[in-house]
């Protein structure tokens, strides 16, 4: 049937449905593209030290801030500290800026940023949870998997 020959009501409905489907398809494509380019995978300290992390990709990584590892530079807001899984794997995080109020030694943190060639993690953002009760779930998981691994011979 030709479009023009349809009753106006039917034609309107058809156009409407076509418009909807087209719009939704376009939106879906757009959304999936945006989703894929904005996924930040979480890596554990072991994965970081064993080179599983793609260099230069935006990821999240975290663990426990090692006691005594926080070093500040003199007259700038640069800070470096070591994050570990409490089972031997550890890596250095460098960050410039203000650390969250709940940041302290022996607490879990999650950092978003990129890993450099020499194994230093450059963070753009450091998160410590608002709630002090629990660690960030990612860190808990990181500690847990390494512990399980270390138990197996």
């Amino acid at each position: 049937m030709k479009l023009g020959a349809m009753k106006p009501q039917r034609r309107n409905r058809l156009l409407l449905i076509l418009g909807l489907v087209g719009g939704l398809g376009l939106a879906l494509m757009f959304v999936l593209k945006a989703l894929n380019s904005n996924i930040n995978l979480f890596y554990t300290p072991v994965q970081v030290t064993e080179g599983e992390v793609p260099i230069g990709a935006r990821i999240r990584a975290g663990g426990m801030v090692e006691a005594g590892s926080i070093r500040r530079s003199d007259a700038s807001l640069e800070v470096a500290f070591t994050v570990s899984d409490l089972a031997g794997a550890a890596f250095e995080i460098r960050y410039t800026g203000i650390l969250p109020d709940l940041f302290r030694e022996g607490q879990g943190v999650v950092a978003t940023g990129t890993l450099s060639q020499d194994g230093v993690f450059f963070a753009e953002e450091i998160l410590a949870k608002h709630d002090e009760k629990y660690m960030p779930p990612e860190v808990a998981m990181a500690l847990d998997t390494t512990r399980q691994d270390s138990l197996q011979p």
């Binding site: 757009f30 945006a34 380019s37 904005n38 930040n40 995978l41 979480f42 999240r60 779930p137 998981m141």
Partner: peptide
């Protein structure tokens, strides 16, 4: 975007991801 990390974790068996504000802004 809010539920995606949950679905990802369920499908991959525990891989944690986060969806950053850039996704939400872009769409």
């Amino acid at each position: 975007g809010t539920l995606y990390p949950l679905g990802y974790e369920a499908l991959t068996g525990g891989d944690k991801i986060s969806i950053g504000p850039p996704y939400f802004n872009a769409v």
